[in-house]
Every structure is written in C-alpha cells, then in structure tokens.
Nucleic acid binder design. Structure first.
Lengths: 360, 360
DNA sequence: CTGAAAGCGCTTACAG
DNA sequence: CTGAAAGCGCTTACAG
C-alpha cells in the first residue's frame, strides 16, 4: 500500500516538493491502487478488477473480502487507466451553441439523467454559436475517445463534419430534423413549427404578420421558423416581409426593444412572431408597461413554451418543444448503440405543439 | 501507422465484429497514435511528445516535419494515456445542486470560460439538492484524478467532507461564505444579503414582513437569507414569523401560488421577501393578473437580480449576486493553485448589492 | 536537442 | 473461478 498521503498544496502537478523522503521515480495519480486492494485482500489484481466490474464472475467469499478491502482503503478506481486499457471511455461530449438559452440547459438535463444512470460522464462543450469554435471543441473532445457524441444542429463547418464522420463513433445530432444526418438525429422540424404558428395567426384573423429574431445567420433554426411563417403567408396569399433582425443575443430586454422598433418601422403590423419565448415575454412585459394592447393592437407569439409564458398578462401563445425528451431520447439511442442494443430508427421527430393562449 | 479505419457501428465497445482481418489482441482506442506520427516524421515518439507539449524544446526543423505528420494523419492525442502517464488530469469537476436555477448555469459559464482558455475540461455534477447524491458524485469524480474541484456550498455529508479533505486536491467551495472552508472559498454572505433586504423593507416603512421559500432544509442558503431578514426584524423590534415554506422546486408558478397562500394565511402582511427571483417574478405576475396592488397592498422582493426582474410591472426589487464572477474567480484561484502561481487569499467575498425598484 | 527504457494503473486474452 | 503476462498510448527520468 502506498503510504502517500499528500498535503493539499503538494498534490497537484509534479512540483518539486520540499522534502521528498525517497527518490520518487514518477508522480502517482491516486493514493490507493488496485494493487493495494489486491494485497490487502490477498488476491491477484485481476481478481479485484473482476470483483468490481463483473461481481458475478468471482466467488462470494473473495468478493466479500475484496469489498472489505476496498472500503477500508477507500479505493477509487482510476478512470484513465481503466479507459486506456479497455479502450472504452464512458465519456460522452455534448456540444451546444449556448447555455444562456434555457432550452439547451433542459436538453442537457435530459441527457444527463439518462447518462448518469448508465455510468457515463457528460463532457460539456459550448460553441457560443461559433462554427470555428465548434471545430476546435470537436477536435479536442475526440481526444477523450468518447463512447459517443451528441451535438446540437445539423450544420457544421466542413472540417467539423469530416471529423465527426471519420471518427467512427455513434453520433446524435439534436434539436432540428434533417434529411441527411451524419448518423442519428433527434429533433423537430423548425420549418413546420414556423408554419404552424403562421397558420394559427392567419386563422385568428391577423393579416400583417412580422417576424423578429437576432443573428439569424448563426441561429439558423430560428431562420427556419421564419421560413415556415413565410411559407404560411405565401400559401395564404398574404404579404411577406423580411424578418426584423439585429445583432445581439436573445433576452427579454431585447424583445421589448424590438417590439417598439418593429411597430415604429412598420405601424401596419397586427402580429409579431418572435424567434423565441425570451424575446416574446420581454415584448409582452414591455407592452404591458407602455400600455400597448396585446393582442388588440398587436398579437405576440413565441417559440419554446417556457413556463413563464403561461403566467404573463396576457399569457403567451407559443410552440412547445419537448426539450427534456430530446435530450433523453438522444442519450438513450446513443447508449443503445454503444451497448449493442437495438437503437431503433435513426431519425426521431419529437414534434411540437401549439399552445394557444391570450396573446394572440 | 495503424490502418484501422473503423466503420461507425463497430467502433465502440469490443463487440466481436463480422470479419476481423487479423487476430487483434486488444481493442485500440484511437486510430492514429503518437507512434504513427513518429514513424511518419522519422523521429522517436518522445520527440513528437515534446514537439506537442513543449515546442521550444525541439528544433524548428523537426518541429515542422512533426507538425506536418500530425496534420496529415489527423492525429489527436489520447487524453487518457497522457493523463495516466503524467498524473496530471486537466479535469475539474464542478458540483452544483441544480441546473433548473439559472444562477448555477451562470456560475458554470463563468467557470467554463476560464477553464477552457487554460485547456482544462469541466466535468459537470448535479446533486439535485441531495447530499447522498453529492457523496456519490464526489467519489465517482475523484476517480478522474481531478486537477482541482469546485463544489457549491459549505455543508456536505460527513463522508463527502472526508473525501474532499482527504483527496489532497485544490478545492473551492462556492456560493456562500463560511468561517472554516475545507480549502478555498468564494461567495457571499447570505445572512448579510437577507439583513440587507430586511433593512431596506423596514426603511421603506413595511412592518409586517414575511419570507417565502421552498425546501429550506436543503436550500440552506435561502434559509440563511431568511435568518438575515429575521435578524433585521429583531434589531428593529418588529414581529418575526416563521417562513412560509413548502416542498417543491422554485418556479414562477409556485411563486404566484405562494403569494396567494401567504396572503390568505396572514392577511396582515405588508411585504414578502421571496427566496429567489424565480418565485418573486411569479408572484409579481400573479399579482398583476389578480389585481393585487404591488407595492400598495403588498411589497414584493427577491434575490439574485435576474434580468427579467427589471422588466416586470412593477419592476422587482432584488439583491444582485455576481454569478459570473463567482465562477470566474473560483476557476482562476483553482488554476493558480494548480499551476503553482499565487492564488491570493483563501477566502473571497464577492459581495452583493441591493437593486431597489418599483415593487417595494 | 534527441532517444531507449521503464512505468502510469488498469484490462484483455490466454491458461489453468 | 483464479492468475501470470502483456499491453493500452502516453510521459518521466535518465543518458547522451
């Protein structure tokens, strides 16, 4: 047993410590190793390994004394050694474009719930809607020999696609739905979502409908929702107009500001479809404060179905996307593929539904 | 160079594949290894290692041909092997009690920004306010030989404290401030925050002040804020009352519901301090919908300083905590200790400030 | 500045 | 059911 009981500051790195007792050849990672446990239990290291990883393959007697030794020594297996030896990493990178958006946080929660139960570790990557950063992240995270990968979106830089395609690991692209995903795909059609909202607004009698969203080149899922609205307008023979756009992240504050700007630029508007609920809720709050009648003067709609939208006055009409489900389904499919179980169809449309409330 | 270019489904696990060309002794983790690069460049593996990790220690000529070989082969270093060999993990677990709360997400963003730039990988752990789960997480994550650890809160199960104390790794406990942290500590005094708000309400002329928060045994930082309010009331010789509490996670919807319940149970109340802005904003929206005059009938205050609080009508008085800073400072201190730089004081009070708005 | 040897802590594959 | 040997892909420590 290594009697190496490091003081706090000395433990990390291989800083030449004050008084090394004996010439130590290498830095050691963990105090207690499998070998220590084996010695204590009076068995071979491999037996300890088996007792831990496949308890059924070891006699009850040995298992008991090994378990005792593990507890007594406080043994924690070194993941790196295990993963290197087995070439099985139990690590799954999840790459999202943002954490500011509650939607991605919920997706991550859905993923983590499933992964943790299965003993896999999530590695978080945040591209900040930057495709070059995505490439870098994918490249770095591939060094972790991941068991599988989950990435938001279907559009990547060419080099990212090449890396993902060539890495030979199970992959799920999430959030949106596409015809030719690299591997598996769980999401919804944002074009359809946009059309759904467009039709609803038209049905409700609105005729001069606009769309508000920021950074539509980067947030191309929002762009798809705009296209959906645009198509619904075209189908109904109504006037189509370019989106009201701007260069900033989504926030309630920005939603309020954009409402005022849009009404100023296009006073004829009778409805506004916002790219997401963060913006739409902000618009609603701004309207309430400024005495703009919603939906009398202008109808307001959002996308996501955040809980708070049900509480505003008027409450917000939105499209509810099953965020937790997207994460949970993606993780489950990945695990199925990793463990060799039947993963089911490569493409899952989780759908979405219209929540009609007072704002339209 | 290993000509092992796996098809997608075969790559993971060691599933007996259909037609193994030659008897392969072990599963291999990555296609291209350091050795492959070395052969291609005509140098020893160790030279490639040096060219990658300490470019200055290799001649420019060799460095160039090695860089070329790396690019040509698409070499990505295997982190596990590196970490096992060097006993330096570049992995930092971050353990938080919740992701539903935007506050922790922002803290995580603050941490990640700093860690990523330094080449460290964040490992996310979510205890869901369950101390037993925290113990399990700490134990598991310790298997990653982390370079350091960040954990929310100062109160842990005894076994968790023992693990953290004994692991010999730099540690930062965040969010709240305490007298005897295990190692380093970055946060604010929730007691003071509660007193600050209590004094503000008293100054404003409110005399019958209540506190609303859920699961105060688990969310003991909220409990501290209650104690702060309680002390301010005691100092002013005003009536103190037990918190209005319930067993559910915080949400705007719950805030609205608790507002109505509190007013029903204690119609004399003239002010309510909510445990956080999620609840307080919900209360505000509920009040607006039900025609309850805020602050005329009842004043409402929150904690966190979420952006949306500035947009409601009336806008929300709250206490702003520097979430991003907490994360960034904690990460920076940890890195300083890991790299041997001066980490500065072991304890940092990031403070907080009162944002007085219309709701009080 | 470059390299041959040994080893990090575990698991695989082969024997018994 | 149990074990001795070899190896995962990298880095340390020692030589030159």
């Amino acid at each position: 047993m290594s009697s190496h009981s490091p003081k706090r500051p000395a433990a990390s790195g291989s800083t030449g410590s004050s008084r090394a007792p004996i010439a130590r050849r290498r830095a050691t990672t963990s105090a207690v190793t499998l070998k220590d446990v084996a010695e204590r239990a009076g068995v071979a290291p491999i037996t300890v390994s088996r007792a831990l990883n496949a308890p059924g393959s070891v006699s009850a007697t040995l298992r008991a004394s090994i378990d005792r030794a593990v507890a007594e020594l406080g043994y924690v297996p070194n993941r790196f050694a295990g993963m290197l030896a087995s070439a099985e990493s139990r690590v799954i990178p999840v790459i999202v474009p943002s954490l500011s958006n509650a939607v991605f946080v919920e997706v991550i929660q859905g993923i983590q719930t499933v992964l943790e139960d299965a003993g896999y570790q999530l590695l978080l990557g945040n591209t900040m809607y930057d495709l070059a950063r995505e490439t870098e992240l994918v490249s770095t995270l591939l060094g972790w020999s991941p068991a599988g990968i989950i990435v938001a979106g279907l559009r990547h830089a060419e080099r990212t696609s090449a890396l993902l395609r060539g890495c030979g690991r199970p992959l799920v692209e999430i959030m949106e739905l596409g015809a030719r995903p690299i591997d598996m795909n769980v999401g919804l059609s944002h074009l359809k979502a946009g059309m759904m909202m467009g039709r609803h607004l038209i049905e409700r009698g609105y005729r001069r409908i606009g769309f508000v969203g920021g950074r539509l080149d980067a947030d191309y899922r929002a762009m798809q929702r705009f296209r959906g609205l645009d198509r619904a307008l075209a189908d109904a023979g109504l006037r189509r107009r370019p989106p009201f756009t701007y260069d900033a992240p989504s926030s309630p504050e920005m939603g309020g500001r954009q409402l005022l700007l849009a009404l100023q630029q296009a006073p004829d508007l009778d409805a506004l479809f916002f790219a997401n609920d963060d913006l739409a809720v902000g618009a609603l709050l701004r309207a309430a404060r400024d005495g703009i009648d919603v939906p009398g003067r202008i109808a307001i709609a959002g996308f996501n179905g955040l809980d708070i939208g049900a509480l505003t006055s008027p409450s917000l009409t939105s499209i509810v996307s099953p965020r937790l489900d997207i994460g949970a389904i993606a993780a489950a499919k990945l695990l199925a593929r990793i463990t060799g179980a039947a993963p089911g169809p490569a493409r899952v449309d989780v759908g979405c539904k219209l929540a009609i409330r007072e704002s339209t």
